[in-house]
């Protein structure tokens, strides 16, 4: 399956990347190289292999359900570009 310029533009749009025509051409080629490599792997018969979801073969860690306040919420608010009271403010969406 080959990727064309339109596919690359669509993926870039989804990621909110504003690419020049030159960049789109470059990335289209690179994406195709990645897919070609994946296609090489497809030659191996994996019918009896369980899909790998993570490189570490273990179950996820779990925490007990205890509520603890984070001590520096003001610090998080300071990371926002604009704050009103204790709310983050974002520019109009539509």
């Amino acid at each position: 399956m080959a990727i064309n310029i339109a596919d690359a533009r669509h993926v870039a749009d989804l990621a909110r990347l504003d690419l020049t025509e030159q960049e789109l051409a470059t990335y289209t080629e690179q994406l195709n190289q990645i897919l070609d490599y994946a296609q090489e792997l497809e030659q191996v018969n994996t019918d009896k292999v369980e899909p790998t979801y993570h490189s570490v073969a273990a179950g996820t860690a779990l925490r007990e359900d205890k509520a603890v306040d984070f001590p520096n919420q003001a610090g998080i608010l300071r990371n926002g570009p604009e704050v009103s009271g204790t709310s983050f403010v974002v520019p109009r969406i539509l």
């Binding site: 009103s84 709310s87 983050f88 403010v89 974002v90 520019p91 109009r92 969406i93 539509l94």
Partner: peptide, 10 residues
């Protein structure tokens, strides 16, 4: 959201 000038996030 329609016509809003800004939005507050909680």
């Amino acid at each position: 959201i329609e016509g809003a000038t800004a939005s507050h996030v909680d």
